[in-house]
Design a protein around this nucleic acid. Structure first.
Lengths: 215, 215
DNA sequence: TAGATTGTTAATCGATTAACAATC
DNA sequence: TAGATTGTTAATCGATTAACAATC
């Protein structure tokens, strides 16, 4: 019988959504502490700065597979590595972006998604002025070439930053080209087959939530 | 003794976060159905398209204060109005934006936040080329004038779309100018006093979550 | 050793789901 | 009337929190 190492949980049980949303916050905080050469950090400290409760931080860290030492805390370097690998930041997935307007351009210039385990390898647009130019080292190609390239490069992740009225059509095109995960930056709700995962990021909705919290 | 109308819940009990995140999705779907002149819609139908369960939709709608009719469903017009007012989309809050780069420009051009109850009334930057120009009818002013204007116009909501390294400084400036709600579009975690609400919208994190879901 | 912190088990809390009565 | 759907009450499930033992 094979004895599994360290954290079995991670491989079997589903990870609670709330945990999944909190862990990137711990991670960000740890990165910002990293240079202050504190060798160990306690759940209490993490909790204080991220405004969660110590016990919750401990639970979450456990789910992520982090191991600490009583009285000492968690080793800085090791906990960062653990969270990185838990979040998949150490394993880069390639993606395609469609729509090089202001938002698309902002994303291409940002170029720090590598930190989050994703890289935009090619961008697409239908504007002839943009086609065959480059932003931040990323080539912009005719959207007509999307499917062909996606299949050749075996890309499964698409980012949509086109105007609202083209969003669903772009999505359909992506699905047809074999995308299995789509990031939707518009406020149009996407209709996709069941085997395609969608993540929507809607600034308007975020603003509305912010204001609701304010009241 | 005064008898309260319709939905007491809404005024007393806190609204579950998950509910708050689902309701905008129902709302979007309803808008898209609106023109198909269906006069009534059932929770089952909403559930089908938004991929939630009928019972959950009913519960959420109840929390939002919607009232339906057995066998018939919810009246289209009235349910849209109810959700609109629940989400605060019918009551516009004014906000200031700082940072007119590609992302900021995208936000100013988007200009559909009104739908979500927020309007950007003035934008700020420190780039002399941009100052005193206009995007989509919104004036861009010197960021030095932020505090003064914020106080005069009694603005409490700020949107940060500056480069990562200026994010915390911008945030501090906003807090000093009296902002009580801040939308952070960077991946830098903000440090704010307890009475300031922050909503972070991080595209990198969203991408990472998407990919985690994919696996 | 005493104090602090992790890790674990149990208790609590809240959200989701199920069951069913009320109603059109 | 029969069937469908809401609204409500109860049961279940899962996440958060508390308590405490283990450990450095």
């Amino acid at each position: 019988m094979i004895i599994l190492p360290v954290n079995k949980k991670r491989h079997n049980e589903p990870i609670p959504e709330p945990t999944l949303r909190r862990i990137p916050k711990y991670y960000r905080f740890l990165l910002s502490e990293q240079n202050k050469d504190t060798e160990y950090i306690s759940a209490t400290t993490i909790a204080e700065f991220t405004k969660f409760k110590p016990i919750q931080v401990r639970k979450d860290l456990q789910i992520a597979g982090a191991v600490g030492r009583p009285k000492i805390g968690y080793e800085m370097k090791s906990i960062i590595k653990t969270l990185e690998s838990f979040l998949g930041y150490d394993n880069i997935t390639e993606s395609f972006l469609v729509g090089v307007g202001h938002l698309g351009t902002a994303l291409l210039n940002h170029g720090q998604f590598d930190e989050h385990g994703v890289s935009i390898v090619v961008a697409f647009d239908n504007n002839p002025t943009l086609i065959d130019t480059t932003i931040n080292g990323i080539h912009i190609k005719d959207v007509k070439k999307f499917k062909n390239l996606a299949e050749r490069m075996n890309i499964k992740v698409g980012i949509i930053s086109v105007p609202e009225e083209q969003v669903q059509a772009t999505c359909d095109m992506m699905v047809d080209a074999g995308m299995k995960a789509i990031l939707n930056l518009s406020s149009t709700p996407l209709v996709v087959p069941d085997d395609v995962v969608v993540q929507s990021l809607n600034i308007g909705v975020a603003l509305a939530l912010l204001i609701k919290k304010l009241q």
